[in-house]
């Protein structure tokens, strides 16, 4: 209640100062446009945050299905975003051949590929542009047990 009263008084005071000034041909006083802009911006940030969480949540459902595998050929640690090895995608066809990663993703749920960010490539080969904040947040969720530098 106190807060509301205080806000109302502040609003009155501001309006009074505004009417004393000449602000040019404006529909709204300056500070009001500023506050509206801030409100819109924070709303957009909130929406982006939600979208981010939803998108990351989708992607993170895949890795949960994959069990931890370790062998002497390659190491990977569940929950670590960064440890990958090309050995994991070796094929038996040839010594130097590797699986086509994009196609693999469609068939199996190989978590490492999706984590590495090799997202769906369209038919023409242009990848979906991954937004930076999304990568950050995805990484943040997964790198909890990464040693701090």
């Amino acid at each position: 209640m106190k807060k509301v009263a205080f806000a109302f008084l502040w609003l009155l005071l501001a309006l009074e100062t505004v009417s004393a000034q000449e602000v040019g041909a404006r529909a709204l006083p300056n500070w009001l446009t500023g506050i509206i802009a801030v409100a819109v911006f924070l709303f957009l940030v909130f929406v982006a945050f939600l979208v981010n969480k939803a998108w990351c949540a989708n992607a993170s459902q895949e890795p949960k299905a994959v069990p931890v595998q370790t062998s002497e050929d390659h190491t990977m640690t569940n929950g670590t975003y960064l440890n990958t090895s090309l050995d994991m995608v070796r094929t038996s066809d040839h010594e130097n051949a590797y699986e086509n990663v994009a196609i693999q993703k469609a068939k199996t749920t190989k978590s490492q590929q999706s984590r590495r960010g090799r997202r769906a490539t369209s038919g023409t080969g242009f990848p979906v542009i991954v937004s930076g904040s999304e990568m950050h947040r995805c990484a943040a969720q997964r790198s909890a047990n990464k040693p701090t530098p």
């Binding site: 960064l82 440890n83 990958t84 090895s85 590495r116 960010g117 090799r118 991954v130 990568m135 990484a139």
Partner: peptide, 18 residues
Amino acid sequence: PDKHLHRLVFSLRHSKEP
């Protein structure tokens, strides 16, 4: 090819591959 692009593009910036 991707093997030339590790750590040179945004989507591969965390990649540890050679």
